[in-house]
Design a protein around this nucleic acid. Structure first.
Lengths: 141, 141
DNA sequence: TTTTTTGCAAAAGGTTTGCAACACG
DNA sequence: CGTGTTGCAAACCTTTTGCAAAAAA
């Protein structure tokens, strides 16, 4: 059931440890944004310290294995930095959904245009693009 | 130098107090996303409690006077909810810049398309769209 | 006077840090 | 064996809450 992510870690110059492999497996298991607390709960049986989870997430982010996601939530959410996509997020509950397309075609020309007009910036590294709404369940309440 | 925002407060059914007027003036003074700490510092002379600043921001957000902005920063940023725009944010420092255009033309048709495909959502209330990069000053370092 | 707002102190979250013990390579 | 990783305890920082005093309408 669990993949072997040793090579991912080696490529990132991170030592292969049971903790790190376990954390990566949580991400590949439910492929959606998750936070430190969630991983801690999922791995409770392995008695991994919450602090270690935070440090693991932080090092994975630096190594571009994980990516921070902005969900307007109280804590920091990450997901595997594998393919480009965005989210619709429910502002009432924890529900959300991925969507694959971006603003597609004209994004790169749009960002060039922005940079041309900009006095302070001449480089864009990434962008956020999320929709916020109320999910069907919350609408019924 | 300072505008009178009494009517803004009255329309929102909020009582007109010196503290609230002062906070609104900070926002209209530097029109950019700011956080509680910043307002607290700006109004230090008036000896306004930080807790009060938090409560003020919170009530302004509920009344749609202010809007939360997602800047990937550690604390919550707000700005006046007057006209639609987005930001380029420096990931290295506090620098950022507004830009007026949105993903413009095809945003609404894009969001309809997203909702058609979605199983969990049938309503979108708002969206985030921010560029992240390194500002010219930070690039030089 | 009634209700809302404010200040103070304290608590609550989420996240980070220091240091020593441990484990990967 | 050396350096990177982990656990534990404690600190930190931002934000929230409870309660009583003060101010708005």
């Amino acid at each position: 059931m669990s993949k072997d992510f040793s090579n991912v870690l080696k490529e990132a110059n991170l030592k292969v440890t049971p903790t790190r492999l376990a954390v990566l497996n949580v991400f590949s298991g439910d492929c959606r944004p998750i936070n430190a607390e969630y991983i801690f709960e999922k791995l409770k049986a392995k008695k991994i310290n919450l602090v270690t989870v935070y440090r693991t997430l932080s090092s994975f982010e630096k190594s571009d294995i994980l990516k921070r996601v902005n969900l307007h939530k109280e804590s920091i959410y990450y997901e595997l930095d594998d393919h480009h996509h965005h989210h619709i997020v429910c502002t009432e509950c924890a529900e959300f959904e991925k969507f694959e397309g971006c603003i597609s075609t004209n994004l790169s020309s749009f960002s060039k245009e922005i940079l041309n007009k900009s006095k302070k910036f001449n480089m864009i590294k990434e962008h956020s693009f999320e929709f916020f709404g109320t999910c069907k369940k919350c609408l019924k309440k």
